[in-house]
Design a protein around this nucleic acid. Structure first.
Length: 294
DNA sequence: TCCCAGGGCATCA
DNA sequence: TGATGCCATGGG
């Protein structure tokens, strides 16, 4: 059993709530106050069962020979963004009349990430311009057909596996022709080592990373920003044009309508350095409150 | 039936 | 640089 003390402004309940939305994600399982996820660490599949309370998180590692405790800790801390001091973000939140309530209602919510960059980008391609319910269905089908598993818990398919697929294989999983093409390109790029988290992190700044990502066919500004937020932990990215984000901004009376670009920029200028957190909290605000209580 | 969904790309002015 | 049309399919 591994213990991770909770940092300031960290709520396991809020993080778990985010994972436990209505979509039935196939890559982890929620049971009560714990989440179980299969993951490959140090080249070996392991099963992590994470539970928490006010003191912090407990990680139970299942399976035989597993990764080092240090690696497991780093994975969990990254997943829930536990190493970040979010207090400056909370100061900004409280200063803004329209969103100040989030500092109370979503207190301790961290930007729950997707540590695996390949999974993250694949998920973006799947989700492009389709509703989230259907996107999850397509992901489930892809994972069921080509992913691995640990004690019944699914792993996202490896790029080497997906790179071998052809368009009809993807079509059978309800990918569109273009998305099939994007997935083939993306998985080959990962399989060949052209893209990786390490390679992107080695670039000089966030703009260089954006450029590297968007040079890949099928990865536009929205996807690149999303992946930088969720996988590379860049807190300054905004997925411009995101329909949910725009809806939340209009709902909060922060934009007159979805085309009110000036208001959009004015708002985010007030959260400089914390744009991604603001986006995440706005997305959080879209979910009905009764789900939060369930 | 109709509109829209956590976009991306090609084309055109 | 911005606007427009197309792709493609399920959910509400």
């Amino acid at each position: 059993m591994i213990h991770l003390p909770a940092p300031a402004q960290f709520s396991w309940t809020e993080c778990l709530w985010f994972l436990d939305r209505r979509y039935d994600d196939c890559l982890y399982a929620i049971e009560g106050q714990s989440v179980t996820k299969a993951v490959v660490l140090e080249g070996r599949p392991v099963l992590l069962r994470i539970s928490g309370d006010r003191e912090g998180l407990k990680v139970d590692v299942k399976g035989g020979k597993s990764a080092s405790e240090e690696t497991i800790q780093a994975y969990v801390r990254d997943w829930f963004d536990m190493d970040r001091d979010v207090r400056p973000f909370y100061s900004l939140l409280r200063k803004h009349p329209r969103v100040a309530y989030m500092a109370r209602e979503f207190k301790g919510l961290r930007l729950v990430g997707i540590p695996d960059l390949f999974e993250s980008l694949s998920w973006c391609i799947i989700g492009q311009q389709i509703n989230l319910s259907f996107a999850h269905k397509v992901k489930r089908q892809l994972v069921a057909a080509y992913g691995g598993s640990v004690a019944g818990h699914s792993l996202f398919p490896a790029p080497e596996v997906l790179a071998e697929l052809k368009e009809p294989d993807y079509k059978a999983l309800q990918f569109s022709r273009l998305k099939a093409e994007y997935m083939i390109t993306l998985s080959k790029a990962f399989a060949d080592g052209v893209i990786s988290k390490v390679a992107l992190l080695a670039l000089e700044d966030t703009e260089a990373r954006m450029k590297a990502l968007t040079s890949i066919r099928g990865i536009g500004a929205w996807t690149a920003n999303y992946a930088l937020m969720k996988s590379l932990r860049d807190t300054t990215r905004i997925p411009h044009g995101d329909v949910g984000l725009l809806k939340a901004l209009v709902d909060h009376d922060l934009m007159a309508d979805r085309k009110d670009q000036k208001a959009f920029l004015r708002f985010f200028a007030e959260f400089s350095g914390w744009e991604s957190y603001m986006v995440f909290y706005l997305w959080r605000s879209l979910s009905p409150p009764q789900l939060a209580a369930s």
